[in-house]
Design a protein around this nucleic acid. Structure first.
Lengths: 216, 216
DNA sequence: ATTACTAGATAGCGAGTAT
DNA sequence: TATACTCGCTATCTAGTAA
């Protein structure tokens, strides 16, 4: 599936990020430099994994890139931006909100992996930041080089999925944004730190906060 | 070779655009999600086609992306820019210089293809613009959607290579930049138009000129 | 340690064709 | 017209291993 980005890019350039576009598998085949059959196959694969959606007509198919597909393209774009004009930091703004409580359990399970990957043993609870669409978008622009992936593992008789960590800081306190792999529409980001952030920094619920991701 | 960009990007992100970096085939394999052997093979392919260069040490190989490789990455970057924040036009500045004369012969041979692709029968001679490094770079940022490719063909008992055309305008006169496929370090760009540009626009040799590429 | 060869395994391609 | 199935073939991958 290393051709996934290739075909998504072609669709994106043809406007499939904005809405449904009419495109035949032969046209795609030409852009891809493959046969019509292969192009058709790839469309089916993308449909299966949810990076595009499709409406079939009697004559033509109409294709649109989903949020998942757009996210992949965004990440790719972020890589090129990181390569050619490196940004030094990304500042996200959010509002402190109440945690769901279940965070505590998960942090405990992942504790060892966090310790190894992030270099600190996290306090067993997350600080939750509610972010608007504009700030949520900024996560897509974090280059992959700034993201630490924690692999899935089994413990406590069940399996825990992949998690992405982005080292960051709040008011110069070292922390990390954690993103469970299967999350889509993120409007709350969870932040880990060595200590109880809310107490230590005297942050109130409902307070606006800046979290800074340093690149490189 | 649709993995070519993939590995170039990985190398670029590791800093191989700026100079030689030390990277083992196993590290690359991990980034690529393949075996060490495959990574090694791909490095050899990239070396063969000249998009990277390498220095072998006793312990490690050191790799650097060449101008050719950088150009490929730039084009890819341009595609993403076109997708996410479309630029409307690219303005290049150059100085009118004397043609080599041989342009006339080539334009005559390609005349039919130009007619079909560009929509006008070109005057049999090119306007040459000498450009500095900064302006030459701008060509890399032209998204592929704005580039018309003319395929290689045989005529007059020999074969003529691929040529890229970029529709543009000089002082609102329709024209096109033509770039033979195998050219690297471009510091002179050749411009085609329906009429003799120098005479019609009363441009003198040595005069500074702007050429505008409209996107979309 | 590396890189990279050979050879056997396999995933992916596309011609033919059904729908 | 389209899309997409089957299936034989070939590209490419990787294990083993040499250098």
């Amino acid at each position: 599936m290393n051709w996934e980005i290739e075909i998504l890019k072609i669709l994106g350039l043809r406007g499939a990020l904005n809405g449904f576009i009419t495109v035949t598998s032969s046209e795609l085949a030409e852009d891809l430099g493959t046969s019509q059959q292969t192009a058709s196959n790839r469309i089916l694969s993308l449909l299966k994994n949810g990076s595009i959606e499709r409406k079939m007509g009697t004559r033509h198919q109409r294709i649109k890139i989903t949020a998942r597909g757009k996210d992949m393209l965004c990440k790719e774009y972020a890589d090129y931006m990181a390569m050619f004009k490196p940004v030094e930091k990304i500042i996200m703004k959010g509002t402190v909100s109440a945690g769901l409580g279940e965070g505590q359990y998960y942090v405990a399970q992942y504790a060892d992996q966090f310790k190894t990957s992030l270099g600190f043993k996290p306090f067993e609870g997350t600080l939750n930041l509610t972010v608007d669409e504009e700030n949520a978008q900024k996560l897509s622009h974090v280059p992959r080089s700034a993201i630490i992936e924690i692999k899935s593992f089994k413990a406590d008789g069940r399996s825990f999925g992949k998690v992405s960590c982005i080292p960051a800081r709040i008011r110069d306190v070292q922390c990390a944004i954690v993103i469970p792999k299967r999350s889509h529409h993120i409007n709350v980001i969870e932040v880990l730190a060595q200590y109880h952030l809310r107490k230590n920094l005297k942050i109130e619920e409902g307070e606006d906060l800046e979290i800074i991701i340093d690149i490189e």
